[in-house]
Design a protein around this nucleic acid. Structure first.
Lengths: 249, 249
DNA sequence: GTTAAGTGTCCATGTATATGAACGCCATCC
DNA sequence: GGATGGCGTTCATATACATGGACACTTAAC
C-alpha cells in the first residue's frame, strides 16, 4: 500500500461523507493523519481541483474533479446501457421513481425520477448509498447470498434508521428467506420515513449483482402496491431477457 | 505538490477519460509514470476499491468508491436544493430533458429526464462534460465574461464535434455577443448531432456561474422552440428570485 | 522451436515524503 | 493584557517511496 495514495483517497472519502466542509484540524481528528502531512496533501488536492476550499482556506470540501471522475464509472457499466429503456418504461408505467443498483445494494447506478411534485429536499442522485439491510434493493441482493455470506458482509451492529429498520440479524435472515421464496423485497419505511420500496434482483448473473427497485409513498394502498410489484417483476424479467440476449456477463 | 497524491488523481482521471479499461502499460504511456511505480499505486487503489480490475488484472477501470465519493459533490452545492423544484417543473411543462450546470458550463449538476422514448444510448448522467464552446450551457456562461477572459479560459484550438461547431474564436465571440443581447443561448447541433439546446444563465451571482438548459430534437419547429425559450426564461427568473430570497451566494 | 512483445511482479538504493515540534496569527475569554 | 485554543504554515530529519532493471509468464509471429 502506497501510504500517500491511501491517504489521498481516505481524505476524499472523509470529505465526501461529511455533511459540512471540514477544517484541517477536523480532518486531523477524523483521519488520524498528522496536521503537517494533511497540509501538504490538501494543498496538492486543492491545486488539482479535487478539493474545494472556502476562500478563507479553513474549510475543505470535495471538488468538481471528483464528480467528473467518479461519474465516469457509470459509462463503464456493461448492463446499464441496456437497462435504460426498461427503467424508463417502468417509471412511465407506474409513475414512481425507479432505481437501478448493484453489488451490496448500495450505490444507485441509474435513477428515473417521476414527474410531478417532489416530497422531500434530498437531492436525487446516483451513487447514493444506504446500508444493504435497510433498503429493498439491498435485501433483494442479500437474498442471493447464504446466511454466512450475509453476516460476513454486514457489520455485527445493524444501524437503525427508522423504528421499522431490521436491526437484528435473526429477523433480517427471516426477511431474506421470505424475499427468496416470493422473489421480491419490500421495504416499508425501514430506510426512509414515509417511503416504501419494492425491489427485484436482476439475476443474469448467479448470484445476481443488480436489482431494480421502485419507491413510493408509504401510505399507498395495497391494490396499487400489487400493481407496482407486478410491474417491477414484469420489467425485471424483460431486462433479464435483454441482458441474456446481449450476452452481458 | 505531493507526488504520489498527484499521481493518484491523475491515474483516476486517466481511467475516467478512457472509454475502455487500461492495462498497466497503456497507463504508463498515457501518464508517463514508470511501470513499477504504477504497479504499487494500482495495487493500492484496487484494494481501496477506487479502481476495478478485470479478474485477469490486466485491465484497470475506475471503481465504485470513486462514484460514491465524487457524487457527494452534489450534496455540497448551495443552489441545487432550491433549483430542484424549478427544474422539475420546467421539465414537466415543456416535456424535454432539462440540465442544470455551473462554472464553465461543463459539469451537469442535475438532470430532469423527460418521459417517453429515449433517442440515443448515451447514459444520461450528472458530471458529464463537454467543452464550454459547444454547448448552450457553456455559451450562456461564457457570455458573462469579457472577450479576454473567454480566450483565456478556452484553448487556442476549438475542437469541432459536428459540422456546426463554432471552431473559430471570432465567430464564437460574435455568437456570445448575441447571447448577451438577447439573454439566452441557442445551440443547434453544435455539440451533439440531432440535438438542439436553449440555455439561460442564472445570474444570482455576477458573473453568473450557473445555467439552466433544455435539450430538444434538432428538427423541432420554430413555434414550439419559441415556447421552450419562453419557458426556460420564465423558470430561470423564478429560480433567480428563489435564490435571492434564500440568500444563496 | 525460437524470437519478440506483451503482460504482472519483485528488489535494492537514491530520492522524495512524512512528521513532531516550533512558529505566527487571530479570536475568545476572564 | 495575559492566557487559552483555534487556525495555517514551516523546517530538519527519519522514514517510506520511486524506479531501473531483472524476472517469470503468456501470447503471437514466423
Amino acid at each position: 500500500m502506497v501510504k500517500s495514495a491511501e491517504r489521498t483517497v481516505r481524505i476524499l472519502e472523509t470529505l465526501a461523507a461529511s455533511p459540512d466542509r471540514l477544517s484541517l484540524s477536523e480532518l486531523q481528528t477524523q483521519t488520524g493523519f498528522p496536521r503537517s502531512s494533511l497540509h501538504a496533501l490538501m494543498r496538492t488536492l486543492v491545486e488539482l481541483k479535487w478539493v474545494e476550499t472556502d476562500g478563507a482556506k479553513s474549510a475543505f470540501g470535495i471538488g468538481p474533479h471528483a464528480l467528473l471522475t467518479g461519474t465516469a464509472y457509470l459509462d463503464k457499466d456493461q448492463a446499464l446501457p441496456f437497462a435504460l429503456e426498461t427503467l424508463d418504461n417502468l417509471r412511465d408505467e407506474i409513475g414512481h421513481t425507479v432505481h437501478f443498483a448493484r453489488r451490496d445494494g448500495a450505490h444507485v447506478l441509474y435513477l428515473a425520477t417521476r414527474e410531478g411534485r417532489r416530497t422531500h429536499r434530498v437531492i436525487p442522485r446516483v451513487g447514493r448509498r444506504l446500508p444493504a439491510h435497510v433498503t429493498a434493493l439491498g435485501q433483494a441482493l442479500l437474498a442471493q447470498l447464504t446466511y454466512d455470506e450475509v453476516t460476513d458482509l454486514l457489520p455485527d451492529e445493524l444501524v437503525g434508521y427508522t423504528p421499522h429498520t431490521l436491526t437484528e440479524h435473526g429477523k433480517l435472515a427471516k426477511e431474506l428467506e421470505q424475499v427468496r421464496t416470493r422473489g421480491w423485497a419490500l421495504e416499508s419505511e425501514q430506510g426512509t420515513p414515509g417511503v416504501k420500496c419494492v425491489a427485484v434482483a436482476v439475476d443474469y448473473r448467479i448470484p445476481a449483482t443488480d436489482a431494480i427497485s421502485c419507491s413510493m409513498p408509504a401510505d399507498l394502498d395495497d391494490d396499487k402496491l400489487d400493481k407496482v410489484i407486478d410491474a417491477v417483476i414484469r420489467h425485471t424479467r424483460k431486462l433479464i431477457a435483454t441482458l441474456r440476449r446481449e450476452g452481458i456477463r
